[in-house]
């Protein structure tokens, strides 16, 4: 899944679906199915992902977009409060503006 080469820009919804797929891969399909994953889902509170899972998720983004998007750089700039408040929609927006 990680090797898909995307031609052209992804729109908002495509990015969201892609990230949702990554989350599913990290936390497991049966868990993801039970969750209502939306733009508003926070990683800490709603998705209950801990730091190790967030890092695994970030590695999937890196593997997919490669050098096109400096996701690690963006993430590593986040302070602890921003990380606690991090929502899926924020990442979608970041990727969208990077393209």
């Amino acid at each position: 899944m990680d090797t898909i080469v995307t031609a052209g820009k992804l729109n908002n919804e495509e990015i969201f679906n892609l990230l949702k797929q990554f989350i599913t891969e990290v936390i497991g399909e049966e868990f993801a199915e039970e969750m209502d994953i939306s733009m508003e889902s926070s990683f800490n509170k709603d998705l209950e992902m801990d730091s190790i899972e967030i890092v695994a998720f970030s590695e999937k983004i890196k593997a997919h977009f490669g050098d096109k998007i400096d996701f690690t750089g963006w993430l590593s700039d986040m302070d602890i409060d921003q990380l606690i408040a991090l929502k899926l929609g924020m990442i979608v927006k970041f990727i969208e503006t990077c393209q």
Partner: peptide
């Protein structure tokens, strides 16, 4: 220190 989340350690 986690490479991806350096600011947690910094905090």
């Amino acid at each position: 220190i986690m490479d991806e989340l350096p600011k947690v350690y910094e905090w």
